[in-house]
């Protein structure tokens, strides 16, 4: 996936575990407009699969879920529905 995704908002959820990684991502996305992109940084590895799965269940788009470095991952989401 390309690197040039326009990110509208970023939240750092390092130190957070499931389900709060999802809950806080969901609350952040609720404040945004349809079509906008949210980048979430996590250091809790299960969140890298759990957050995208839950977001897809809610009808949101997962643009990327990738390792950034030894400790961190990024999850890039696009709001598709209110």
């Amino acid at each position: 996936m390309s690197i040039d995704i326009q990110v509208d908002r970023e939240i750092n959820l390092k130190g957070e575990v499931c389900p709060y990684t999802f809950v806080k991502s969901k609350l952040a996305l609720e404040e945004m407009e349809v079509g906008q992109v949210l980048r979430v940084i996590v250091d809790h590895e299960p969140a890298v699969t759990n957050v995208p799965r839950s977001m897809e269940n809610e009808g949101q788009a997962v643009l990327r879920a990738a390792k950034l470095n030894d400790t961190d991952w990024e999850i890039v989401l696009r709001k598709e529905t209110e």
């Binding site: 389900p19 709060y20 809950v23 806080k24 969901k26 609350l27 952040a28 404040e31």
Partner: peptide
């Protein structure tokens, strides 16, 4: 409205229904 409007305690307390 949204994340900023909830305290961390509220997010924890209501997490299972916010989900």
């Amino acid at each position: 409205m949204g994340m900023s409007a909830f305290s961390d305690e509220q997010i924890q307390r209501y997490s299972r229904q916010i989900i």
